[in-house]
Amino acid sequence: MTGAAAWLLSDSPGSRGQARLGGLYRRWRLFAGNRLAMAGLAIVVALVLVAALAPVLAPYSPTAQDLGQRLLPPGPAHWLGTDELGRDILSRIVHGSRITLYIVSLVAVIVAPLGLLVGTVAGYYGGWIDAALMRVTDVFLAFPKLILALALVAALGPGLENVIVAIAVTAWPPYARVARAETITVRGADFIAAARMLGASRMRVVATHIAPLCASSVVVRLTLDMAGIILTAAGLGFLGLGAQPPLAEWGAMVAAGRQFLVDQWWVATVPGIAIFAVSLGFNLVGDGLRDALDPKADRGTAPRGGA
């Protein structure tokens, strides 16, 4: 074991920072021990890198049309072929990764805190607050997600930002449910009673004692849902309600390529594969996180012996 690892795994950390880093490192070791999760992480990291370096990586402009070069099969000039307007598909995929990343990260930033807040407050306060919040949640859950998102985008008008709003509005209720269920299991714990007796207000208990315990299941659920979010965005894009042309959005690319599926299969298939790969990556990361963030995993290293 190297010096740094020993320092991180020390059983008597010398500072708050060391304790926190040690906790993170322990979880990372659990995560890194899972090969599939690491494969998923590699895909997600690749997506981020491709999005960051899009202008450098893309051989052509994603919007440059060349009608003389339309519907070319994959070849040395265009590795993944060209579409019906002669645009390089590889360049469009590379630039499209930015849009995908933009959608999933914005949705995550809205959905996770919102679901966590609603769920923990409902679960901890109980009574009429719980009843009111959960009925609102039920109303959202009662509609099929895609239909509700469709209706919202139709009302707000097509466009990327509206897609994000629509997905976020339809995606938070399950998170509230997860957080509420988790809250109810810890609500009666002695450490919550102790915190109350020490003078912690209810809001403080929710924020510093309950939310950290529910956060891990929300994060896991979020990574598992990423695939669904990408697919919903792609679905809306496919229906022409998402990113508007000439933006290179993967779902819209599949939609456009569908009419050439028989003769020019690559136009629709390549963006389809991209959607599939990224969804798979997030799913694998989610599975790995579920194991690594499991609070029960903390108990493995308890020292033995007396006081």
Binding site: R16, A19, D298, P303
Partner: peptide, 8 residues
């Protein structure tokens, strides 16, 4: 700076 799981 220990966590509970590091205590007997």
């Amino acid at each position: 700076f220990r966590y509970p799981h590091q205590l007997s």
